[in-house]
Design a protein around this nucleic acid. Structure first.
Length: 261
RNA sequence: GAAUAGGUGGAC
């Protein structure tokens, strides 16, 4: 893509902020930090001005690359330029805080955003609900979910997965199954991602039969167990000391054409 | 007109 971009420029087609943002997104997603920094200075040299999309892409990318300090540096630039944070940037920041176990700051930022008159959306709510569920604060998570629904956002598969994953992490499989059922009653279908959460929950409780029957179920529904599914099950058997079954599961995975990561 | 943000595993 970078090569195409260069040839585009030399053919006289002028890049703009949108094309540059796409390139930056790509560079950061494959982890080419140095390429990205070089690109940024080139952008500056030809006078292309980054906008909120660009900065959001950069901040999100830097955090995923574990370069938090740099990310905050870019946030400082956003402020200094007098750009007004929008719902996407707020949601990105909240998600970052959640993923760094900084729930308090995330909640604070949420309050700030509302005070600034920015309306939270599904992304914002889901990040916060995820954080609350990870901590086991299901009561507050549920309150937020209700608030979300009141504001007119119908829960989707992702926010249901946040809740279910939280219950599974805290070994509350009854609640997890309850929410799972509710989700399906609401006409949503599960994906492999969601099944993996449930399978992991049962493995944590050493309920391998339940875990396996979940895997069967996902296959029944036309889903394919992936490398994460197998890793969960292999580790489940290992934690129980059942090396044979762990090895069997590993071989099954290879037979399905999935290689370990 | 086109670009950005939310949910799973890896034991000891």
């Amino acid at each position: 893509a970078l090569i195409l971009f260069k040839s585009m420029c030399s053919n006289g087609v002028m890049p703009n902020t949108v094309t540059c943002t796409i390139i930056i997104d790509g560079l950061l997603k494959v982890g080419s930090i140095t390429e990205f920094l070089k690109f940024l200075t080139e952008m500056d040299e030809i006078g292309i001005v980054p906008n909120l999309y660009t900065f959001n892409t950069i901040i999100n990318g830097m955090c995923k690359a574990q370069m938090l300090d740099m990310a905050w540096g870019f946030l400082g630039i956003v402020m200094k330029r007098g750009l007004v944070l929008d719902v996407v940037l707020y949601s990105t920041l909240i998600s970052i805080l959640i993923n760094n176990s900084n729930l308090e700051q995330a909640c604070k930022l949420f309050g700030e955003m509302v005070k600034e008159g920015v309306t939270p959306n599904m992304f914002t709510y889901t990040s916060l609900i995820t954080g609350l569920c990870r901590e086991g604060n299901f009561l507050r998570a549920w309150c937020l979910l209700e608030e979300m629904v009141e504001k007119g956002f119908a829960p989707d598969r992702i926010v249901y997965t946040s809740l279910i994953s939280g219950f599974c992490k805290h070994k509350k499989m009854k609640k997890a199954e309850e929410v799972f059922r509710k989700m399906q009653e609401n006409g949503l279908t599960a994906d492999a991602y969601l099944y993996n959460c449930l399978i992991d929950g049962y493995c944590k409780l050493f309920l391998m039969d339940f875990a396996i029957s979940k895997m069967d179920k996902m296959i029944q529904y036309g889903l394919t167990p992936d490398v994460v599914t197998y890793t969960i099950l292999i580790n489940g058997y290992r934690k129980m000391g059942d090396k044979d079954k762990a090895l069997k599961m590993y071989k099954l995975m290879l037979k399905q054409g999935i290689s370990p990561d």
